[in-house]
Write a protein that binds this DNA or RNA. Structure first.
Lengths: 344, 344
DNA sequence: GGCTTTTACGAAAAGGTTTTAGTTAAACTT
DNA sequence: AAGTTTAACTAAAACCTTTTCGTAAAAGCC
């Protein structure tokens, strides 16, 4: 159906080899022939078959991107960023969604390898705790980059937010606003991001000599509005005097905010709230939600850039090197946490 | 690097043909040989090379999805829906973002054809008004499905929301709430969706004998918070007595809401507001924004299902048939438009 | 037992590109 | 003029799978 090198060669009265070389600018083809052939291929809109090409070159210019979910501002942003940046370097991205399922993640990785993608970028599912599928990628010599939800045990490139710093900054910010009894709505126990943010929270308390109480920490495994909402209702029974809250993600914070409002608390006067991720919604609700920026755009670019750098290395062992690139966090103070009105 | 049929054949002491046939369950291979070979391929984790396979079968099980943007609740939802549904039918999706650029859209289509994807799903860029690239797809006999931002002039399958009905419902809802002077913040002039919603608006006014005034309609080409915000500030100078507003999309509506609040208008008492798309944020802001549901999930499934149906048809001419599938709209009344408190 | 049918497997071509290793003719040496 | 370079092009193999067409042996038939 599609035109092939053979067709072009026939039409031009030259060999297949010559056409191929002309298109790839080999120096043993005369300038006249080159322009003649190129003009023709341009005219008939010929582009060499990518799969046949792969068979020789072993390069697909395809990248596999595996995400736990797509309907999520941050993953969404990082996806757009990777796709656009990849496109500008002539790479295309196959996007897969593990739907937080380890099984799916595993089989998707396998399928990507079967497709011979040039690289795999992945943010792992929450309950992924077996990493043989990831090690398989490395064994296969396919560049692997973990991002955001990473696994420290896998010897590959990893691009992460500074989650510890984020937890620390958020909590210290609340402390500086005068909070003494700070609740943390944390994420699940397994993911590194959730652990790191929690440690940041703890560290900030410690630094400011506020005793850590594990009862003030609740797990929100789903990261939804409802979890934040329910989390507050449960906590408030035992601790009606909380005056600060740091949530694992903005949506949870907004749920918490809803609960506090319903319970008659004033925000930020009675309780200061800060989230994480800087979702679009956070700057549009009332009061505007303080948060920590999670720059998906920057991270996406970093992931893609790291991949490109790998391509320009000697190859071979360049893939399986453990390295952690950390994207700095940034505090975005807004109304929801500003007890002292000095800023903003 | 990867194992091939040849390797397996060698190890098993049979021919390449036999291995291939065994894996594809041909009936001229004995059951014993089949199980023996399968056990081995399972063990060594062999999967046939997808590209070599393509060369014979002309099937890639890849789908190209072209979107104007990704950071957008609706496109995001539809993407997730398509990707997941596709995965369950063993198709993988290459996602491309035209960034609202006709030029990029055009070259991306070309690249997808070069990759021999089994189908292309596209929602066109705002300023796309030349359709030769789309017709090229049809000429290439590649199934093409347009969705949401479609082009009526292209003879292909199209899946759309009932935008006319949506505009009508939204406007009529405002009228029923007692609004007499209803502003419409519409989208750009070219996209069909924007035209249809506008026509719906007009039709509702007409039905209820409210004269249409073109000064009450403003174009918001960017569909952002700012556009809605500015739109209201501009309008309000001339028409301080507007009592209703229908915006092309929720984010614009929220911008408008912000402006009205700042100007001291009470919502919905002074002015009733309704958006379109049911973004996540709309149910979380105060007051909750009334809107029209734009079910991305449903549309994604419909798009993919239509594609699968095409695959099961005789092929050939099945691709280039003009057909429009309409996903019904649904009114979601919330606080922002409820002047009469009968509902909710 | 001589015939046809069935069973189980293999050879080879096709699919389109890339690249190595030529080949020919012209141009250049001395 | 004989030999060497260079320029411009080509043949053919390789990449890996699928599928058509064969072939050989075993089984079935009267």
């Amino acid at each position: 159906m599609n035109l092939t090198l053979k067709d072009i060669a026939q039409a031009m009265g030259v060999s297949v080899t010559t056409v191929s070389k002309a298109l790839k600018d080999y120096k043993d083809i005369s300038p006249e022939t080159k322009t003649r052939i190129r003009a023709y291929t341009e005219k008939v809109n010929f582009r060499p078959n990518a799969h046949a090409s792969f068979l020789r070159t072993q390069k697909t210019r395809l990248i596999g991107l595996v995400l736990p979910r797509l309907k999520h501002d941050f993953f969404n942003e990082i996806t757009e960023s990777i796709i656009c940046y990849a496109a500008s370097h002539d790479y295309k991205v196959i996007v897969l969604c593990s739907e937080e399922s380890y099984e799916k993640e595993k089989s998707q990785i396998k399928e990507l390898l079967q497709l011979n993608v040039d690289g795999i970028f992945i943010s792992v599912a929450k309950n992924t705790n077996d990493y043989t599928h990831l090690k398989q990628v490395i064994k296969n010599n396919t560049p692997l980059i973990l991002f955001d939800r990473t696994v420290k045990l896998v010897p590959s490139l990893q691009v992460v937010n500074d989650d510890f710093e984020a937890g620390f900054m958020a909590t210290e910010h609340l402390i500086k606003q005068g909070c003494k009894k700070i609740v943390h709505l944390r994420g699940d126990l397994i993911p590194q991001i959730s652990i790191d943010r929690f440690f940041g929270y703890k560290k900030a308390l410690e630094k400011h000599n506020i005793p850590f109480k594990k009862e003030l920490v609740t797990i929100c495994s789903e990261n939804t509005f409802e979890e934040g909402y329910k989390g507050v209702f449960n906590l408030i029974k035992k601790f009606p005097d909380v005056d600060g809250l740091f949530a694992i993600t903005d949506l949870v914070a907004i749920g918490a905010m809803g609960a506090f409002k319903e319970l008659g608390y004033q925000i930020p006067k009675d309780v200061a709230i800060i989230g994480y991720s800087n979702w679009l919604i956070s700057s549009l609700i009332t009061p505007k939600l303080s948060t920590i920026e999670q720059n998906g755009n920057k991270m996406g670019k970093q992931v893609m850039q790291s991949f490109l750098d790998l391509q320009n290395t000697d190859g071979e062992m360049a893939t399986s090197k453990y390295q952690r690139l950390i994207i700095p966090s940034r505090l975005i103070p807004r109304t929801s946490s500003m007890k002292t009105t000095e800023l903003l």
